[in-house]
Design a protein around this nucleic acid. Sequence first.
DNA 1: CAGATAACAGACCGACCGGTCGGTTTCTTA
DNA 2: TAAGAAACCGACCGGTCGGTCTGTTATCTG
Lengths: 212, 212
Amino acid sequence: MSTVDVDSVERIDGRRARGERSRRSILEAAAVLASVEGLEGLSLNRLASHLGISKGGLYAHFDSKEQLQVETVRAAAEMYGRDVMAKAVEAPPGIGRVLAFADTFLEYVKDGPFPGGCFFIASFLDPANLRGPVRQALAEVQRGLLDFFAENIRIAQDAGDLPTDLDPEETAFEIDAILVGADVNYVLFDDPKRLENARLAVRRLLGADPGS
Amino acid sequence: MSTVDVDSVERIDGRRARGERSRRSILEAAAVLASVEGLEGLSLNRLASHLGISKGGLYAHFDSKEQLQVETVRAAAEMYGRDVMAKAVEAPPGIGRVLAFADTFLEYVKDGPFPGGCFFIASFLDPANLRGPVRQALAEVQRGLLDFFAENIRIAQDAGDLPTDLDPEETAFEIDAILVGADVNYVLFDDPKRLENARLAVRRLLGADPGS
DNA sequence: CAGATAACAGACCGACCGGTCGGTTTCTTA
DNA sequence: TAAGAAACCGACCGGTCGGTCTGTTATCTG
């Protein structure tokens, strides 16, 4: 609304800075709680009291629960990008990168910030989130992961590390399925053996040495 | 409570017979609705009005929502036993039986009575059902399925259809993971191609001909 | 026929839901 | 210093939740 400084780059607004910090901590807490209670099962009252604020305070940052859910999905994607994908891309493209992602993902399921297993897998099948913008946000993340797998499989094929008659999309589906199955079984049985099952399965699928 | 006829086999009580019919239709409807709205998200009011009865009527058959949930899990297991497993065991034990199960399961996901995909996978990841008797009932079903896969893999090994250095538990995990991954991706993307992905993946895993 | 019993209907309860609103504090800006 | 914006509190709204209680009706038993 001001006339001159359209963006006011240098001066930081202490109020907005505080708001931004609150917003980030709200979204991170929402993602963590949602992995346990579900994106829909997470109530605004519980989220607010867990953060030590009031429900009205939440509505200073979000217009509706649905908007909060959508932004929570994006926040969770950022967390995975920072904690898992960043580690994966340290490995060279191809088989190594896929294995690095799988290993880091499985560790993240066990010891990461989400006590309910993978945030996204828990959200995919929460039937309440299967419509509308929340579903679309979730589908975009999953689509990106499948593309990541397929791309690196093509790179591995070009490098001669994988047979060329392999369908990258098919193999990407199988890798994803193994990780999804590991998470589901791990959460259901509370048994880390399922994660080791998945580690071996991915290696067998890519014809890699079972020892890291 | 009666003194003589402890079981009253011959005479049927028209009231109890009606109750038993109601009970069955309640549980089947609950299973179908739960695949869409989740076992926890399914409310007693909606279930009752969907059946054309009142909420009080439900409590003539079940003491609590939790008991209804547990019995719904068992009812869904019976539906899968009748519609999927029964067809699988028509095939001879071993690889054929596993393939028959996988194919029938994938068809069931697409065209079966559960519009929300597999009832159990939808329930596994509903974080609200991850505690208490409901979780235990779900885990038992999953445990039984994994055992079914492992047992038939051992049979296939004994018959020389699969290499003996294969770990049956590991392979059972992988087959299950493929089916879980197919369901999750199918529901998320509403794309039947995922089911074909899974069909091929199971065949590749068991070294079977891609054509049925 | 007269109970007893099972299967309901429907009103109701306290708790919690997402969401709104007015007021207060804190900080920035003119 | 006065005005205004942002962050947040706390009370409140209509509605739904799981669960209870009191009938009422149909059926079986004696």
